[in-house]
Design a protein around this nucleic acid. Structure first.
Lengths: 225, 225
DNA sequence: CAGACTTTGTGCAACGCTTCACAAACCCCT
DNA sequence: AGGGGTTTGTGAAGCGTTGCACAAAGTCTG
């Protein structure tokens, strides 16, 4: 079995590790921009807000190797992480739902790096169709199959209200999109081969309220000034 | 203060459970709105997208008790979860950074439920100060201490670019805010008593790219129609 | 009132992730 | 060339979370 002997650490990267790799990548880009060519696990870890041990264990899953006594080559590590994450190709993104959040996401600069590009914005509301948002014309949902085929859209972002989320998700899946990022606080039913990622702003606030409230319960902390 | 002896399961609720409670709460509100007064763990779990066992274990940390053979009383469970999360009081929120994202968050309806209210919006840029956003006047960062004292602000939301995030966070902490939700993709250094929660949109896209890419690597899935 | 049925609550095992401790490997200086 | 210092890579322990299996507890029917 060939199986590409050395650089085949593709799979079996723990999910927790994957979710930290983008942070490492950002810190590495920042270091490279400052002309730094080598970093130790301690430096990189503190830039990323994790422990050095965790960074090293994370990196060990990549098959990437640092140099003992020296550290990691910044440029090489950037390449390794980018490859592990599947970057290095273009990732055309479509955003469905052009309310406040959808507009902000369309204009958000964080969505325009590392190969991610918003190439289509859509809305169900005919009143919004045809408007210009972040340099793009708002299209109706019915255009999705054509847009996906034409632009190679690989990721769909749902910024619709909760009630429209399932319908919009179904439309994305029907059009061939297999990765969805949703901001709608609703449980979506999707085929198993579609990857889903949820960002729930209300939940984050609730968790913070819980943390803050249990803080106040504590006997002697944070009361006196 | 009486201290309410029996229902004091406040602390030692697992973090994973806390992060699911808001979802349950939302499903319960939806059920209540439809006139449903009793739900089984199976029904509620499927509405929330988790397994019934997990729902029951989560709920067991609340001290709340359902009725065997019947299920949970919707109204009572709403009260129990809300109390566990520290809801039932007002949570004034301040948003720092009035770029695209900050504006969208200020107008986002999901931030206006369950006692959460955006009561102040701020920006470092003098050109933005004085503008109206979502019915509020943009204030300069220097006003934070006065606003926190006056409005009882308990939660700060950071929607600034990465470079300004640490400064803005310091200003929030100095003003007395002890819970921060940040959208800036930067590692923040904060005093240990301040609760921090990060939402990183770029990371979510990267993770999706990884999931999508490993999907394509798979031998025989999703290729043929 | 008894027995069948339903649904909750929970001890326990399995799993994954994090952290520690330490050996292996490399550089640099003399 | 050798020794000291530094940093990586990883086995193993510790911890929290998930999922299972089953007993306990309640309702409903005859």
């Amino acid at each position: 079995m060939p199986m590409t002997p050395s650089p085949s650490a593709h799979r079996d990267i723990p999910a927790a590790t994957v979710s930290r790799l983008p942070t490492y990548l950002r810190a590495l880009h920042s270091a490279a921009a400052r002309g730094i060519t080598t970093v130790s696990s301690g430096q990189l870890a503190s830039a990323a807000g994790v422990l050095p041990t965790q960074l090293r264990k994370d990196l060990s899953h990549l098959g990437s190797h640092g140099v003992r006594g020296v550290g990691y080559n910044v440029a090489r590590l950037i390449t390794e992480i980018a490859r592990a994450l599947g970057l290095g190709r273009a990732w055309p993104v479509a955003i469905v739902g052009m309310g406040n959040l959808g507009r902000a996401l369309a204009a958000y600069s964080g969505f325009g790096t590392e190969g991610f590009h918003v190439v289509a914005v859509l809305d169900r509301d005919p009143a919004l169709v045809g408007e210009q948002v972040a340099g793009l014309t708002v299209r109706p949902i019915e255009d999705l199959p054509a847009l996906v085929a034409e632009l190679g859209i690989a990721i769909g972002v749902l910024a619709t209200p909760s009630d429209g989320a399932q319908t919009a998700a179904d439309a994305l899946v029907a059009a061939g999109v297999e990765a969805i990022l949703t901001f709608a606080p609703a449980a979506l039913a999707l085929p198993p081969h579609v990857s889903l990622r949820r960002v729930d702003l209300a939940t984050e606030l609730h968790v913070l309220a819980f943390l803050r409230a249990s803080l106040s319960d504590l006997p002697d902390v944070g009361v006196a000034g």
